[in-house]
């Protein structure tokens, strides 16, 4: 079991020694059981920290803000930022390291093991409780969750309410960290691509109409992009404001510049946006599942990214985010790479 006291102790130690600039963990929202990211700046604030099955956020995303802040400030504080990461989150740190977006000493990592469980899916929890309101959601004994409802304790088997991504997770233990809490327990994720097996059985035209239907609902709120630990470009192609502006670009050229994607939620623009994002995440997405979780219209974005993950694995034997020294997928070329899918 991950000890919350130990977590607090580690954070306190890091903050009071001045080793880290500030710490990002999780705290409860008000007196409820739900959780939000917590920015801990003072050692005495560590008591705000929690570690519960509702800590689904991938905090790595906040490193983008820190990087931009540093670029903005004249004399930035370059001490590392402390982060609490799960196995999946830690893989996204590895990808950022691969892409030289951050350096190892930009971040102080407290890794927490998901052991035999993971984080929950709120919809599944609500369905399971059938209208009852939980007061607390906690980790139970081996492989269960403990939910307090009406001052009663209910024990729920993890697979019943686990987030989909956790059911297919190949990394329940942090792959990179300065301190690790909890035990490394081997867990067999079963079929890592379970969630796409139904999709893969669809014919091409069925898939096309499936995605058309899904993307037609997109509001282009860009929540998926905002929450993604990999979407760190200062200028996203989806915004394309200055993409071809150079010293030599004339005012005339700027004036007639059009965008790759217009930000109006039309089907063709939506498809373009999502497909560009999927391609840009190929070989980079660690399946933290945050995009799908935050989508207000519940577009199954994990399906798209998971499919790309599987392609990269099957075609090129590429696993994302286990090794910070591994080159990015697009930069790996071997003469014997398969080519028969090029038509």
């Amino acid at each position: 079991m991950v000890s919350l006291d130990q977590l607090k102790e580690e954070v306190k130690k890091a903050l009071s020694s001045g080793k880290v600039k500030y710490f990002i963990g999780y705290e409860n929202i008000g007196s409820g059981w739900q959780v939000r990211p917590a920015f801990i700046r003072q050692p005495e604030d560590v008591d705000r920290l929690v570690w519960t099955p509702a800590c689904f956020h991938n905090l790595v995303r906040f490193l983008h803000d820190e990087k931009r802040r540093r670029a903005r400030e004249k004399n930035p504080d370059i001490r590392p930022v402390g982060l609490v990461v799960k196995g999946c989150d830690s893989r996204s740190i590895n990808v950022l390291l691969q892409e030289k977006y951050i350096e190892r000493n930009d971040v102080y990592i407290i890794g927490v093991s998901c052991e035999l469980t993971g984080v929950i899916n709120i919809t599944k929890l609500n369905q399971h409780l059938n209208g009852l309101k939980p007061q607390k959601v906690l980790f139970g004994s081996k492989g269960t969750f403990k939910v307090i409802v009406d001052d009663r304790e209910i024990e729920i088997e993890a697979p019943d309410i686990l987030a989909d991504r956790c059911l297919e997770c190949p990394a329940n233990f942090p792959v990179i960290a300065d301190v690790i809490l909890g035990e490394e327990i081997k867990r067999n994720p079963g079929n890592r691509y379970q969630s796409i097996s139904a999709y893969e059985k669809m014919a091409l035209d069925e898939r096309w109409s499936f995605w058309q239907q899904q993307f037609s609902r997109c509001l282009r709120c860009y929540a998926c992009r905002s929450v993604c630990p990999m979407c760190y470009c200062d200028e996203c192609v989806a915004d394309s404001i200055a993409y071809a502006v150079t010293a030599e670009t004339t005012a005339d050229e700027k004036a007639q510049k059009t965008r790759w994607v217009e930000r109006n939620p039309e089907l063709s623009e939506n498809i373009f946006y999502h497909l560009v994002r999927a391609i840009h995440l190929a070989g980079r997405c660690v399946d933290c599942g945050e995009c799908e979780r935050v989508c207000p219209v519940e577009i199954p974005l994990r399906l798209l990214n998971k499919k790309m993950e599987k392609e990269a694995k099957e075609l090129f034997g590429y696993e994302v985010g286990f090794d910070p020294a591994q080159p990015p997928l697009i930069a790996c070329f071997r003469d014997n790479d398969p080519q028969d899918f090029i038509r």
Binding site: E99, A242, V245
Partner: peptide, 17 residues
């Protein structure tokens, strides 16, 4: 090729390809 410095994040992908 020309680098547009304010867009470059230095990921090094171009270097390796």
């Amino acid at each position: 090729a020309r680098v547009i410095r304010n867009l470059c994040t230095g990921c090094g992908m171009c270097v390796s390809v």
